[in-house]
Design a protein around this nucleic acid. Structure first.
Lengths: 247, 247
DNA sequence: CGAAATCTTGAGTATAATCAAAAACGGTGG
DNA sequence: CCACCGTTTTTGATTATACTCAAGATTTCG
């Protein structure tokens, strides 16, 4: 599978995974004013309560939306990869109900709402594609809810690894069943509603059971079918196109 | 606050909570062909894997989307009330990734996708309102994730009660701090990732702490501010208009 | 009125949390 | 190249929240 191609526009890539763009649509997307910005790790890009006037596209790195409870506990609600548009919702919902932060150093492209609105007005299919994007986000939230609420730690972690691998493959960030996943155990814990200590113990168990191999940030899955089964993983909820979903 | 007015069209009500409809828009909505159907309790309306050709609007009753894990455990991911459009996503995502079932006897209105598509094409603001609707669903999913992952059972249940009360008030199904909530403890357990036994114990504790009063299906909250605080509840994520959010 | 569903309570257990500290790792500068 | 420092991972010991199993009480509804 081809690696991420930095020469093609990220939004073009994103939308072309849904349908064939017309020349006009492609042209409009490529000429969308976008402010490229580098952001270092562990920085908030948008905060709960903000009223943003622009969205951003992930170009490189990993970011996450999270909330804090009154007891100071953090819940990470997703991991965003290259091509994702984390706060597309700000286009229609004025106030941010969560914070979005970088996990690794990131490259992002900011796009002003007005430009996106113009684009949606002129090309309804683009608006549909954005809408579809938010629907898939919601589908992923539902799956995470199911994991957090009803799967034990062992399958829960296996499930997350499956999801990340499939999504990274879909955007060319992983090949076969190996990927570099620069997410700490603390972050995994906050995403899955577990303690970092327990995450560590389960990862150790997954390794000694031969389900995963870890070298630094590199994770390899020797037996994909078995990991999928352990994690009760079915990629359907990601609503990827067939070619990409092939596992 | 006025009780639910069955004479006004549910979609008109829904969209008017977002913006003022033009006469044309209102007229188109009111003339949308809609098949009214009564469904008894505990029936699936749509199943995982289905490829629906229509959406439905909730008119009466409560329904829920859920998933089953391979171990046979159920996760309920939301509660849908009158006015909600549970599977709007089927308009853009072909295959259902979860099942939707009634909790109580329900009255629903089925609307064919083609009619909704025509409507969206003709009235872009209506499409925006639908999109906004799915964004709010996603915001609720995020809040639930936070509850399930990072709040203990006691605040978790308090939080759910707060949410249901606010949402029911918003559509005229509750007055003040009293509502009829026909959801069993097993269903609450499946929604919050708890066992029914534990839900029962926590509800007992909430009662003996004077936070809620239960008579049959009727639930009363004597001290709203205190329940909100216990449940770490802030209605912001529901993105209600100001008048409705007033607590 | 009676059967089925729901709620309640008790007893014992298990998964995962917390607390604490040591080991390993990754990057930096000398 | 290596020593050093902060971060992350790992391990141990103890505790707690919540689960399971089981049975009895209560409510709901036909």
């Amino acid at each position: 599978m081809a690696l991420f191609d930095p020469s093609s526009h990220p939004l073009v890539r994103k939308l072309e995974s849904v349908f064939k763009l017309s020349d006009d649509e492609r042209h409009a997307l490529e000429n969308l004013p976008m402010q490229l910005t580098d952001i270092r790790a562990d920085q908030d890009i948008g905060r709960e309560g903000d009223r943003p006037s622009r969205c951003f596209v992930m170009l490189e790195g990993i970011a996450c939306p999270f909330k804090m409870t009154d007891k100071g506990r953090r819940q990470i609600m997703a991991f965003y990869l290259a091509g994702d548009i984390p706060d597309l919702q700000s286009l229609l919902l004025n106030t941010m109900d969560h914070t979005i932060a970088t996990i690794t150093p990131c490259k992002v492209g900011f796009i002003r709402h007005e430009h996106l609105r113009d684009l949606c007005r002129q090309f309804p299919r683009v608006a549909d594609a954005f809408w579809r994007n938010t629907l898939i986000d919601a589908a992923v939230f539902r799956e995470w809810m199911t994991s957090i609420g009803r799967r034990e730690a062992y399958p829960r972690i296996a499930h997350l690894i499956c999801e990340l691998l499939v999504r990274m493959r879909a955007v060319g960030l992983a090949e076969d069943h190996t990927a570099e996943i620069p997410i700490t155990q603390v972050e995994i814990a906050d995403a899955l509603g577990l303690s970092n200590v327990h995450v560590n113990r389960v990862l150790t168990a997954l390794r000694s059971d031969g389900l995963i191999e870890i070298k630094g940030r590199l994770i390899r899955v020797p037996d994909w079918e078995r990991l999928k089964e352990v994690g009760d993983f079915d990629a359907g909820y990601l609503h990827l196109e067939k070619e990409q979903a092939a596992a």
